[in-house]
């Protein structure tokens, strides 16, 4: 049976990298006593795969992994048992049963939305400028950035990868849980809905960098916090959160 597990990662755990998060959940599943399936061979490992990796220092309340299980209980019970094994900064939010033919989260991820906000104590003199000019920035026809790889440099237009972006007060952002956010002086931020996945992938940091260039101010990466709200897939008709591919398991 395939399960899709949704979790939040926040606080000091934003400094734990993607591979270590995988290792953390492998152990947590074992401690929770869930009936996960294993590979064959001398060193069996759990059959779990993660969706879109989250960058170091980014918090999230929309992370996912899929796992193959031999038997399952209910959503409520599994969420509870996993949460008993979490540490501060990690919280399991949902467990869904996937259809047998469902593709892995990693394969179907198409977009994510984020809120980027200014950290407490940073950019005091530039905050107003940043909040007030964003619409102008977003109305540009193209947003060109210089993408550097080891050998080549090329100019890429990131505008088509921005599905939507605007300044919003936190209270106006659907699904945002403010308890996951870090210290800040303003109760608003930059909401961004960006393409994510193996085909097209845009990080919110890159948008902020381009924005600072647009404003002709230096980009200070440490001045901004990034929080992912949700990860999405395209189900053929529309873009929906990853958990929608599965059903909740209730007692009946």
């Amino acid at each position: 049976m395939k399960l899709r597990i949704k979790y939040a990662k926040y606080g000091s755990l934003k400094f734990i990298g993607h591979l270590d998060v995988m290792r953390f959940f492998q152990k947590a599943i074992r401690r929770a006593g869930l009936d996960v399936a294993y590979s064959q061979g001398f060193s069996p490992h759990e059959l779990i795969t993660f969706a879109a990796p989250l960058g170091l220092s980014v918090t999230s309340e929309g992370e996912y992994f899929d796992g193959e299980f031999n038997s399952v209980t209910t959503t409520k019970d599994m969420v509870k048992r996993l949460n008993e094994q979490m540490v501060e900064g990690m919280e399991v939010l949902d467990v869904r049963l996937l259809k047998k033919e469902a593709k892995t989260a990693m394969a179907v991820v198409s977009a994510s939305d984020y809120v980027v906000y200014i950290k407490s104590g940073y950019l005091n003199d530039k905050a107003e400028l940043l909040f007030n000019s964003f619409d102008a920035f977003m109305s540009s026809d193209t947003i060109e950035i210089l993408k550097k790889s080891k050998k080549t440099e090329k100019v890429v237009d990131i505008k088509p990868m921005i599905i939507k972006a605007a300044v919003f007060p936190f209270d106006g952002i659907d699904g945002l849980s403010k308890e996951y956010l870090g210290e800040r002086d303003h109760e608003k931020g930059f909401f961004m809905f960006l393409k994510t996945g193996s085909e097209e992938n845009l990080k919110p940091e890159l948008v902020m960098e381009a924005y600072c260039k647009f404003l002709d101010i230096p980009y200070e990466p440490h001045a901004f916090s990034v929080h992912r709200l949700e990860t999405y897939m395209n189900d053929g008709e529309s873009t929906v959160p990853l958990y929608m591919a599965g059903e909740m398991i209730s007692d009946e």
């Binding site: 000091s12 400094f15 401690r31 870090g182 440490h222």
Partner: peptide, 26 residues
């Protein structure tokens, strides 16, 4: 939430910040 001894800025500029944050299981 615990307040870390090192700022985000320091933690993001050194190798393996997870060495210094504590909060591990057990």
């Amino acid at each position: 939430m615990r307040k870390l001894a090192l700022s985000d800025e320091i933690l993001m500029t050194i190798e393996k910040p997870a060495r210094y944050i504590g909060g591990e299981v057990n």
